[in-house]
C-alpha cells in the first residue's frame, strides 16, 4: 500500500550562480497527501516545478510513476504528464475562453470523444468543484477561490493519478481555504489520487497533510509522517509549527 509514486535522488537546481536546491532526495507515497513545507524562498515551488520538468534540474534519479522523467523524449514525457494534473498558484486558466472550455481543452486535445460528450464531462467536473452554474463565465469574472476551483477541475479533466498543487490556499480567506481543503480530501479519498502540495498555511497542513517534506535553504531537513513532524525536535521545524499557534 505504501508504495512510492515519485522518487527523487540528489536533485539540484541553480539559477545562474545561486544554488536553489542542493542534492534534495525525497519520496512521495501513493494515495497520500504529501506537503512540501518551508519558509518563503526555500525552494518549494522550484522543487515542484523541477519534478514536472518545467525547470530543468540535475538529478541522479527523478522517477515518477516508474519512469525516469529526465530521460524521456518529448512524446514519452507528454504521455507521462497526461497522468498528472497541476494546480498553479493563480490558477493559470486561459483567460480568453470560458471556464467550461478551459476544462474541455485537455479532453479535446488528448481524446477522440465527441464534443457534446466532452462538454458533459467538463460540466460534471465543474459541478464536482461546485462551479456547475458558472461554466460560461470567463476566468476574469471569477473570484480568487472560484478560479482555483476551476483550475482544479481542469487539472482533473483527464483523471490524473498525481495532482500537484502550488500554494492552493494562498490568498484565500480561511473559510474558502477550508472548503478547498475539504475538496482536496474528498478527491483523495474518493478518487484515490496522490497529492503533492506546496504550502505554508499551518491550518491547511494540519487538516490535510499525511506526509511532510520540510525544506530549508535548498536542503531537506525533514521527511516523514505528519505525526513525526509535529513531535520532531528539529529546531527549524519546531519554530515553524510554533510560530503559527495561538497560545
Amino acid at each position: 500500500m505504501n508504495e512510492t509514486v515519485i522518487h527523487i535522488e540528489k536533485l539540484s537546481v541553480s539559477y545562474g550562480s545561486s544554488l536553489i536546491l542542493e542534492e534534495v532526495s525525497a519520496d512521495f507515497p501513493r494515495d497520500r497527501i504529501t506537503v512540501i513545507l518551508g519558509t518563503s524562498g526555500c525552494g518549494k515551488t522550484t522543487l515542484l516545478k523541477s519534478i514536472l520538468r518545467l525547470i530543468e534540474p540535475r538529478a541522479e534519479s527523478l522517477n515518477m510513476l516508474g519512469e525516469e522523467v529526465l530521460q524521456l523524449n518529448e512524446e514519452e514525457y507528454n504521455s507521462l504528464i497526461r497522468k498528472t494534473g497541476v494546480l498553479f498558484q493563480n490558477g493559470a486558466l486561459l483567460n480568453s475562453v470560458s471556464i467550461l472550455e478551459n476544462v474541455s481543452i485537455p479532453l479535446e486535445q488528448h481524446t477522440t470523444l465527441s464534443i457534446p460528450l466532452i462538454r458533459e464531462i467538463a460540466s460534471r467536473k465543474l459541478e464536482l468543484v461546485g462551479l456547475g452554474h458558472a461554466g460560461d463565465k470567463l476566468p476574469g469574472e471569477l473570484s480568487g477561490g472560484m478560479k482555483k476551483r476551476a483550475a482544479l477541475a481542469r487539472a482533473m479533466a483527464l483523471d490524473p493519478q498525481i495532482m500537484f498543487c502550488d500554494e492552493p490556499s494562498a490568498g484565500l480567506d480561511p473559510v474558502t481555504s477550508l472548503k478547498l481543503d475539504e475538496l482536496i480530501l474528498s478527491l483523495k479519498n474518493q478518487l484515490k489520487m496522490t497529492f503533492v502540495i506546496v504550502t505554508h498555511e499551518l491550518a491547511s497542513i494540519h487538516r490535510i497533510a499525511d506526509h511532510i517534506i520540510f525544506l530549508e535553504k535548498g536542503h531537506v531537513l525533514f521527511s516523514g509522517s505528519k505525526e513525526d513532524a509535529l513531535s520532531s525536535q528539529i529546531p527549524e521545524l519546531l519554530h515553524f509549527f510554533q510560530s503559527g499557534s495561538f497560545q
Binding site: L54, R82, T84, A92, L93, L94, I105, P106, A151
Partner: peptide, 17 residues
C-alpha cells in the same frame, strides 16, 4: 507575455500541449 507571467504557458505544457 501575459500568458507566460500568469503561468498559462506552463499550464499548457502540463496539459501536454
Amino acid at each position: 507575455a501575459t500568458m507566460k507571467i500568469s503561468e498559462e504557458l506552463d499550464a499548457l505544457k502540463m496539459m501536454a500541449l
